[in-house]
Design a protein around this nucleic acid. Structure first.
Length: 331
DNA sequence: CATCGATGTTGAG
DNA sequence: TCAACCTCGATGG
């Protein structure tokens, strides 16, 4: 159940334990047999996340593009970095990625805390089973419908339930990337913010939809959308062109901040100004990590009234009308 | 045990 | 606008 931060963490995990290694690729489920055969026996050269898209580059210009969708997940096993530190000098996505080096993406090395599985949570029973198998034999037998298994001498990554899983050439990757809005961890620098400002302010579409539009900005999902708008005190229905420029810039910078925090902690922590005690509580209880997401019916944390839920573009939107206002209406 | 909904996207109508 | 994709935790009987 990933938003952008999850995919960046997955990319980091691949850099640690798979990039630079010859990969045995297979499709235990069978639905990706041809694609796996194209990758099998080739060395992984780079792993890059842009928004919710993951690109795994192999030798001979073969790039695996994966989108986890709503419930896809990667499960890692074997010798997997537990206290992952940002890998350095993994190069670029060949000629397909003009968006800067991986080091530029992440700046200084940042300690991370990985579990064995990233993406949708697994059944505990399954995790225990795999743990036992790992002690006995490597690699463990695939559990369930594994679309792709990527295997090194010591590490294994299983992909299940993705929306997209395909082998592309650099040209095709270029086409995909060209349709994506900026990702603060990929497109560092002022041009990215300018792109975002332009994309928002040129349309009358509501800002609540624009933040979810991956061609406007990459990586934001339903949780971050709701929380960013609350933090900005912005009514989700405000047309893009009516959002003050400074507010649009503040949204971009806040997204950059929340995304960095999400990559570092592995949690979508969207609250500010918590005491140490409140922080611990929030990290243990998902409900406590957010101001409005899935908190409809509860009193707004700020201002008057309750948090409400409504449909926007076919997704549940959570917001606090007593706090979030439309600019220029005096509210 | 059955059903529902979900941190997402695509494509048919 | 809505179903389909395909997985699994939460919920209710």
């Amino acid at each position: 159940m990933p938003e952008g931060h999850s995919i960046h963490r997955i990319a980091i995990q691949f850099r640690h334990n798979f990039v630079g290694h010859r990969i045995a690729a297979s499709s235990p489920q069978g639905r990706f047999a041809d694609g796996a055969a194209e990758l099998d026996g080739r060395t992984m050269l780079a792993a890059t996340a842009i928004g919710k898209q993951l690109f795994l580059e192999f030798e001979d210009d073969r790039i695996l593009r994966v989108h986890l969708g709503l419930y896809g997940a990667w499960d890692f096993a074997g010798e997997i970095s537990a206290d992952a530190t940002i890998a350095s000098s993994n190069g670029r996505m060949g000629q397909t990625n003009q968006r800067g080096t991986l080091l530029e993406q992440y700046g200084e090395q940042t300690p991370l805390d990985f579990g064995g599985s990233i993406g949708a949570p697994r059944r505990l029973r399954m995790a225990e089973q795999e743990k036992e198998e790992t002690l006995d034999a490597f690699p463990p037998d695939p559990v369930g419908a594994v679309r792709v298994r990527l295997l090194t001498e010591t590490a294994v990554a299983d992909l299940r339930g993705p929306t997209a899983c395909e082998v592309l050439d650099p040209q095709q990757v270029e086409t995909v990337i060209a349709k994506l809005g900026p990702d603060p961890l990929v497109d560092a620098g002022p041009e990215a913010e300018e792109r975002f400002v332009r994309a928002v302010r040129r349309t009358t579409k509501p800002i609540g939809l624009l933040l979810m539009d991956q061609s406007v900005v990459s990586g934001i999902g339903n949780v971050y959308r709701a929380e960013l708008l609350f933090r900005a005190r912005l009514d989700p229905h405000t047309p893009g062109r009516e959002v003050p420029e400074e507010t649009v810039r503040a949204l971009w910078r806040d997204w950059a901040r929340l995304l960095e925090l999400g990559v570092r902690t592995g949690q979508m922590m969207t609250k500010d100004d918590l005491t140490e005690e409140e922080w611990s509580k929030a990290m243990a209880d998902q409900q406590e990590r957010h101001y409005v997401y899935k908190r409809h019916g509860l009193p707004s944390p700020r201002g008057e009234g309750d948090i409400v839920i409504e449909d926007m573009g076919g997704r549940n939107l959570y917001w606090a009308p007593g706090w979030q206002v439309r600019p220029g209406t005096g509210g």
